[in-house]
Write a protein that binds this DNA or RNA. Sequence first.
DNA 1: GTTGAAGTGATAATCATTTTCATCTAGCTT
DNA 2: AAGCTAGATGAAAATGATTATCACTTCAAC
Lengths: 150, 150
Amino acid sequence: MPRNRPYAGLPAREVALIGRLTQQRANVLKALMAVEGFVGAQALHSRMADDGSPVGLTTVYRTLNAFADAGRADVVRDDNGERLFRYRPGPDHRHYLVCTACGLSMPVDSGPVEDWVEKTARTSGFANVRHTVELAGLCPDCTQEQAPAR
Amino acid sequence: MPRNRPYAGLPAREVALIGRLTQQRANVLKALMAVEGFVGAQALHSRMADDGSPVGLTTVYRTLNAFADAGRADVVRDDNGERLFRYRPGPDHRHYLVCTACGLSMPVDSGPVEDWVEKTARTSGFANVRHTVELAGLCPDCTQEQAPAR
DNA sequence: GTTGAAGTGATAATCATTTTCATCTAGCTT
DNA sequence: AAGCTAGATGAAAATGATTATCACTTCAAC
Ligand SMILES: [Mn+2]
Ligand SMILES: [Mn+2]
Ligand SMILES: [Zn+2]
Ligand SMILES: [Zn+2]
């Protein structure tokens, strides 16, 4: 059996996105893909340490940024400015309603917004229009946990 | 003539929003209102120093945050995470198409998005749903300045 | 196997924003 | 017209996420 197959188990698509194939990058990608919803670089870093795949924080940042640049991760900023990443399996693009308490992210039907963005871009005269649409609130579970107190 | 009228020239509405009426706060608000579009705290701070109304950077931050909390300023984050503030004369809330080259910001008709947000929030079960909608692109003028080359 | 470019990571640097805290003052009380 | 005090100021230090350095390691082409 071969010694080093750092990318074993990762989609071939992901492998092509970044330069050299290293154990560290493979571990970062696996960790990112294993997370439901958004994660910060620091949280991912410590989670990997706990899981026995310690990687330098610098490398976590580098890999996540490269992945985001390649369009394979969504990036949002939480309220205190920290950047959160989420793996995006396909080239499709979605928007989410994120719980500000527990981080749960629920995909929403953004068709109407996409249509509006396209129309607005077309009639504005602007070129190369990009959009950011973020919804955040308290999920049903977290809403309940807040209510009981009086 | 009275000596101290720090809030002279400011809408009475704004005066009610913050606690004590000080010269510094009045100057920050005047400076913010004088700016077209978004400004960062640091930029506003140095602009005020240049204009002969020096105020501590801490006070600029405090006043802008208070103003934003009161709903009288819009806040966005630029690409490197800096928070930019813009005065909002009324309680209405708008969205803008911002030119990434020259900073020009053009208000867009966001009715459809607001409707979509409300509907999405209602059917999601989430509480206290907030939204962020940002459009960015190249304005017609800046598009032209890029084209001539070749 | 040799080799050079790319990657790693501990550490230091950046940089916007917040906290501290000694000092000041707006604006009410007497 | 003082006196009073909670609220405000701001220089300086702390914070905290992210990025730059750089000596060292490793991938992968030859
Ligand atoms: Mn979209
Ligand atoms: Mn809106
Ligand atoms: Zn929740
Ligand atoms: Zn422009």
